[in-house]
Simulated assay, not measured.
Amino acid sequence: MSAPILQTRALTAGYGGRAVLNGIDMTLRENEVLCLLGHNGAGKSTLVKTLFGLMAQSGGEVFVDGAKRERQSVRASTAAGIALVPEGRGVFPSLSVEEVLKLGLWSADVPPAEHAARLDWVMAVLPDIKRFYKQRAGSLSGGQQQMVSIGRALLSRPRCLLMDEPSIGLAPKLFQDLLGPIRQLQQDTRMSILLVEQNVREALKVSDRVVVMKSGSLIREALPGELDTNAKLMELY
Rank of each mutant, 00 (worst) to 15 (best):
K214M: 03
M163V: 12
Q176N: 07
L178T: 06
Q184V: 13
V200Q: 06
L204D: 02
F175M: 15
V206Q: 01
V210D: 01
Q187F: 02
V212N: 00
L218N: 00
G180T: 15
V196C: 08
G216R: 00
L161E: 04
F175E: 01
C160N: 11
E221Y: 10
G180Q: 15
L178C: 09
E197I: 01
L162G: 03
L170D: 04
Q184T: 13
L170V: 08
D208L: 04
L218M: 09
L161W: 10
V206M: 09
D164M: 06
L185H: 11
S215C: 03
S167R: 01
R190S: 14
E197T: 04
L194C: 03
P166Y: 07
I168V: 15
K173Y: 05
R183Q: 11
L178W: 05
L174S: 07
P158H: 08
G169W: 12
L174G: 02
L170F: 05
L155Q: 05
V211L: 13
P166G: 04
D208S: 03
L178D: 07
D164C: 09
P224H: 11
R209T: 05
L161A: 12
L179V: 08
Q184F: 00
N199C: 00
K214Q: 15
R190V: 02
A222L: 08
L162E: 06
D164P: 05
R190M: 10
G216M: 02
Q186R: 08
T189W: 12
R157L: 06
Q186L: 10
E202R: 06
V200M: 04
E165D: 08
D164F: 06
L170R: 06
D208H: 11
V210I: 12
P181M: 06
P224G: 09
R190C: 13
M213D: 02
V212C: 12
D188G: 10
V206E: 05
L161T: 10
S217E: 15
G180R: 15
V200C: 08
Q186G: 11
G216H: 00
A203Q: 02
R190P: 02
Q184A: 14
G180P: 00
L185P: 09
K205E: 14
L155W: 05
S215V: 09
K173Q: 13
V212P: 00
K173L: 15
I219Y: 03
P166M: 12
R220G: 01
M191R: 11
K205I: 01
Q184L: 09
D188W: 03
L195H: 05
M163D: 06
L170I: 09
G180M: 10
A203L: 05
C160D: 13
K205H: 04
V210P: 00
A153N: 13
R201E: 14
P181A: 10
G180Y: 14
P172M: 05
M191S: 11
L154C: 10
R209N: 05
S215P: 00
